[in-house]
């Protein structure tokens, strides 16, 4: 009886211990990555290939999402505004929403699946097949070889992809306004310019840098923590996507609270 009463307490204790251990491992990985920054001879040659893999290869999916987001935003704005608000506000809503929110967040979430899962699976497989140990025995710091080029590439390329997505989303909204809403280009552009501030673009860039660092470092973290063969790799990949998506949403709220006051 006493044992069954203690079981929930033990479970909570175990969960707390696991969480503290995970925070410790994350801190260790972060510290190791920062220290590894000075080993440019190891991570340098891998930066450009990672930028291509993380950034350039992600452009099609990001633009696909942005394209349809722009179309839907334009149609929904028109549906909401008709008869109550001048229709040129469609341009305002499409521009503001794409740049401030949907461009960075939807791209971030999509790339947490594409990029984060890829990193976790790749490093996880290397971990369970002892390739990470092999790197160590060949005098390569795995942080410098695997973590630094991926996180730097994420920080540099996510904003590029997000800016492209923002642009395509606005263009899609514009085209939709012209073709389906009987608006003129002048009207759409008038709305787009109305509340436009260059700070909005910087806000988008800051958010996407933080998303890029999050997705890549969470992928690395779960990849390095992989145990247990193929099943373990699958578990690490799933966790990486779930956790980085959650952190993206938390960061989204955080940046809005801190930077849009």
């Amino acid at each position: 009886m006493r044992i069954s009463l203690l079981r929930p307490v033990e479970a909570v204790g175990q969960a707390v211990l696991s969480a503290v251990a995970a925070v410790g491992r994350a801190g260790q990985l972060g510290l190791g990555a920062v220290r590894a920054l000075r080993k440019g001879s190891i991570w340098g040659p891998h930066l450009l290939p990672q930028m291509a893999k993380i950034g350039v290869d992600s452009v099609p999916i990001a633009l696909f999402i942005a394209l349809f987001t722009g179309v839907v935003l334009s149609l929904q704005a028109s549906y909401t505004f008709t008869g109550a608000i001048p229709l040129y506000f469609v341009g305002t809503l499409v521009g503001k929403t794409m740049v401030l929110e949907l461009g960075p967040v939807l791209t971030g979430l999509a790339l947490s699946g594409r990029v984060g899962a890829n990193i976790a699976a790749e490093i996880g497989t290397m971990r369970v097949t002892e390739q990470v140990d092999a790197l160590e025995t060949l005098a390569y710091d795995p942080n410098a070889y695997l973590v630094v080029p991926r996180v730097l590439a994420g920080a540099l390329m996510f904003p590029m992809v997000v800016l492209l997505a923002n642009g395509v989303g606005v263009l899609a909204g514009w085209a939709t306004s012209l073709s389906l809403l009987d608006m003129s280009s002048q009207e759409f552009l008038k709305g787009l310019r109305l509340f436009f501030r260059s700070w909005d673009v910087w806000f988008s860039v800051i958010k996407s840098v933080s998303f890029g660092i999050t997705v890549t470092s969470v992928g690395c973290f779960f990849g390095f923590g992989t145990t247990g063969g193929a099943e373990g790799v699958g578990r690490a990949t799933t966790r990486s996507v779930v956790v980085s998506s959650m952190i993206i949403l938390v960061l989204d709220a955080f940046w809005a609270a801190v930077l849009l006051k």
């Binding site: 290397m126 097949t129 002892e130 390739q131 140990d133 025995t137 060949l138 005098a139």
Partner: peptide
């Protein structure tokens, strides 16, 4: 230290059970 360990590892070759070649 980490650097001393990497220095030592240059003197030690390790043949892994499943080779651990980089795919």
């Amino acid at each position: 230290s980490q650097e001393e360990l990497y220095e030592l590892r240059r003197d030690v070759g390790y043949v892994f059970q499943f080779a651990a070649l980089f795919d």
